[in-house]
Amino acid sequence: MSWLRRHLLLFAAVAVLLYMLIPNVVVAVFSFNDPVGRYNYTWTEFSTRAWTNPCGPQGLCDSLGLSLRIGLIASLIATVFGTMIAFALGRYRFRARSGTNLLIFMPMATPEVVMGSSLLTLFLMMGVSSGGLAITIAHIMFCVSFVVVAVKARVATLDPRLEEAAADLGANPPQTFLRITLPLAAPGILAGALLAFSLSFDDYIITNFNASPSSITFPMYVWGAAQRGAPVQVNVIGTVMFIAALAIVLVSQLLTSRRRRAAA
């Protein structure tokens, strides 16, 4: 009994982790399903057909490519903008500071459905046609704030004396920025960029408001497929993404810890 009590917290933690991970397991398992009918919701029999032909369903891989392209462009631009703002906030004193903070905070406090619909009204009024460009513009908009937060958290922990030391050792301001500030802020910038990419790649609601029939992103494809019955290949791609990302994280962790050990 006391053993149970002592490990109660552990059981709770593991249970919540399971709650979080079970859908991923289900997605992976059902990527090997061979469903009867259109809906891949109940288990029928084992098959690797979807894995051997991942681009089988029409439009699936096109939508994946579009999402990757939009994700890359949007996260790149949002990262540049967001990093610049984060440095201004973290390194300078200026008027309009609280206004800037508010402007950064607002998109995070606004439901996606409001942002998506309001952009639609703007584009309608300006006569901008829906499609890839409109989607990219929208994604940059909602990603900037998250990049600012990620980078600012890192910039705030940077010791300003390191920059002073660089200046003291003869580095001019651009050199100081390139050799000291930027490398030290890099983890925050990278985290911001990754977050921006995953937000963009995974966005359905805002995208849906600004998409045209010729600009179907991956989440839109999944949504549409869910109405008609999702092909098993969707599970394949979900599983591949999951495993690839997990592998990247684990390998990078392994490398950093090994490098640390080697250097010690």
């Binding site: 004396r161 030391a165 200046a167 003291d168 580095a171 000291i180 490398p183 030290l184």
Partner: peptide, 19 residues
């Protein structure tokens, strides 16, 4: 400016570049 002076400092917290 600091980088133009032929003066160098040993900082209290050392301020060694961690990277």
């Amino acid at each position: 400016r600091p980088h133009q002076r032929n003066v160098n400092t040993v900082f209290q917290s050392y301020a060694l570049f961690p990277h």
